[in-house]
Amino acid sequence: MANDFEHGMHQPVMDVLGPELGAHWRSRTRPAFALRAPYSLTSEEEEWPVVGQMYGPPSLPVDMPWPEGEDEAYGLEGLYPLTHLATIDCAALPKGVLDFDLPEDGSLIFFAGDPCFEGRSSKPGATCRLFYIPGSTKTAVRETPEEGIEFESSRPLRLISSYDSRLCWYFIEEKYPLPEIDEDSLAKAFDVWNYSRVGGMDIQIGGHQDPIHGLSRVRTPDGDLRGPHGPNPDEDISVLLASIRDTATNDLVLHCFIRLRDLKQHRFDDIYYDPEW
């Protein structure tokens, strides 16, 4: 699967920045998958491969309890059922595209609550959980608990493309200040590149946290600032595993980060999650 640089989609941005500054920018991009779950399909969308599902009842191990979270924002006592946001079929995603390796098979299943609070999924009462279910595990479709809120019905999740996810220009400009160039032209070049490739996606796998939604220096793990052309990262850093747009929950965008060492060991029980509205 060819990425944006191989397609030449980055060229309008490179034309504005010039070769030297453009090379600095390119060194901070990272490959990502763009996934979408359309309500209805066009003829083009019907050709997109199905790689999972959004919402609806998930397939869980028969002995696995339904994940729960704690509503600490409103001072309510007890736990409540989390919502199934998405299931990703690891075997259905192309191999060798991202700059980290997902499991060869099995499913990644994302749950979140409403409201959802920033934190680590290992914390008791966490309002976001991620589970890895190996492909050999016996599973069955599980309905949402009766006391849970009704959410959107299941929709097939399809792979739009791979693309090069850019780091927010704010971080690059700190080290490489912009020369006297037309910033409006640069913004338009970024817009053409972003929306022609991945406009309207529901899930991003890999890459950088989407700068359109406000990349935060404080809340984003430092490891996510690397690029594939930079030095090999330490396994202790965190990378963006997924960003999920939850249209059923106040248009939440949930960013999930994971340590490289945990990813290599297929441990998904201690992700760092960063919700934004």
Rank of each mutant, 00 (worst) to 15 (best):
D4S: 15
D4C: 15
D4I: 04
D4T: 09
D4K: 09
F5A: 09
F5N: 03
F5I: 06
E6G: 07
E6N: 04
E6L: 07
H7I: 02
G8F: 00
G8Q: 06
G8W: 03
M9F: 11
M9I: 03
M9Y: 14
M9L: 11
H10G: 09
H10I: 04
Q11M: 05
Q11F: 01
P12L: 01
P12Q: 03
P12Y: 00
P12M: 00
V13M: 11
D15C: 00
D15E: 07
D15P: 01
D15W: 04
V16T: 00
V16Q: 03
L17V: 03
L17K: 05
L17H: 04
G18T: 01
P19G: 11
P19E: 14
E20V: 13
E20I: 11
E20H: 13
E20M: 10
L21E: 05
G22S: 08
G22H: 05
A23I: 00
A23N: 12
H24G: 02
H24S: 09
W25I: 03
R26F: 04
R26H: 06
R26D: 00
S27V: 00
S27Y: 00
S27F: 01
S27R: 13
R30P: 01
R30I: 03
R30S: 12
P31A: 15
P31N: 15
A32L: 07
A32C: 09
A34N: 10
A34F: 05
L35K: 13
L35D: 12
L35E: 13
L35H: 13
R36L: 08
A37N: 10
A37T: 10
A37C: 10
A37M: 09
A37Q: 10
P38V: 08
Y39T: 12
Y39H: 15
S40I: 05
S40R: 11
L41R: 12
L41K: 14
